[in-house]
Design a binder for these strands. Structure first.
Lengths: 215, 215
DNA sequence: TAATATTTTTAGCTTTGTCTAAAAAATAAA
DNA sequence: TTTATTTTTTAGACAAAGCTAAAAATATTA
């Protein structure tokens, strides 16, 4: 499998969760920063390899084979992210780009030994689950901070948006995985939430609250 | 720089040491398992980028810029080999292929942090020197086992040939970096050498003796 | 030195993954 | 239910990196 094919599979995998009735050509093009026509070409190729089920104009689905391949790429990506943060001292907003390259290194032994070296982690530095060697994903009951009721104290366990801008905002507010948060007030008008973290009070927008996973 | 360009630079770098009067097109083709015509095409491209000095029919030289780039690729390769052996438990005959892929990951921070994580190693698992971040190479006074006189006891510090076959032969004979070797006899007729290692006597061919570095 | 052999380059073609522009299908709106 | 809009596909082209076959240059040898 080529790096390009792997990137398409990964994107289709991620988009499948959002649109279970078939992933759109344009959506894929948007994620990969490419053109719809290029996507159509690649979908035909992936279909020939039985990695996706694709019918013209009808959106695309991963086959079981494609889903497993996609999970293995996600596994690689997330294990490398753990490595970069835990062993090489990268910050959680610095790992994505490099992991994007490392995930395509083809070696079963490499990734399984890395997994072992890292002590079989279940979650990556952004709180996303890491599939095991069989493709099984750990699950965790988590909610968006925006869904938490006033008075509750919960713990940050992940981010929905993993963009550098969002992660750096969280750094600035000293919010990281494991940070305890108490919901103090919610503003009905604009969804703004007042929270307490590390004995300090902070007001965050609904957009922030909709991208923080807590438990 | 593309992966392909990097591979050409690396090969030219290695061949430069052997043929200081310019590296031949055919030699490069042989190392890269490609055709001479493909090499010619690439040499033009590398020349345009001022990574090599190339004149038709006259062989090719690395420029200073090209030499530094090549050294950085060698640095990446050898640091990853150390990582695979020291941290992930790979054997010295298993690392080449994977390191061949890892060496092309583009990130200064990655490689410098890896270097630090590994404690700035000077030599890779085959005894080859690792260039530092500036491209400086450690040197070590070493000889081929074939050059050692009878009665001397020396230590294995590297292999010239890093092929799987040779490394596995050494595994079988329990020879690794750090192994002490005493030269007992040399056969004038065929270059065969009788040595003592780990209190056992072993007869090795001249080919073996010409590929083992000792000190 | 002339003839032969080897090496290297050129010319033109292939594949992969991309693109643009135009055509076709599906969806939304009037 | 037509018309308009959006989405998707097709057709044809391009760059990178490779190939084959033939031509040109260099090296070897008689």
């Amino acid at each position: 499998m080529t790096t390009s094919e792997e990137n398409y599979l990964k994107v289709i995998y991620h988009l499948s969760n959002l649109s279970p009735k078939g992933v759109n050509t344009n959506a894929i093009a948007g994620m990969l920063d490419t053109k719809a026509s290029s996507v159509t070409d690649m979908l035909k190729k992936l279909s020939d390899k039985e990695l996706v089920n694709y019918q013209k104009y009808q959106g695309v689905f991963l086959t079981e084979k494609g889903k497993l391949s996609a999970k293995m790429i996600v596994r690689n990506h997330r294990l490398w992210e753990v490595f970069l943060v835990e062993k090489l001292g990268f910050a959680w907003d610095e790992v994505h780009e490099v992991a994007e390259e490392l995930e395509h290194i083809r070696s079963e032994k490499l990734i399984n030994q890395l997994d072992k070296f890292l002590n079989f982690p279940s979650f990556d530095p952004h709180g996303d689950p890491i599939p095991n060697a069989k493709g099984e994903m750990p699950t965790i009951a988590k909610q968006l901070l925006s869904e938490i009721e006033i008075g509750s104290t919960i713990t940050c366990v992940g981010v929905k948006d993993t963009s550098v801008d969002f992660l750096q905002y969280l750094n600035k507010q000293q919010i990281s995985l494991g940070t305890n948060i108490t919901v103090l007030e919610k503003e009905a008008f604009d969804g703004t939430i007042k929270i307490e973290i590390n004995h300090a009070v902070l007001v965050i927008s609904d957009k922030i609250a909709n991208n923080l996973f807590v438990k």
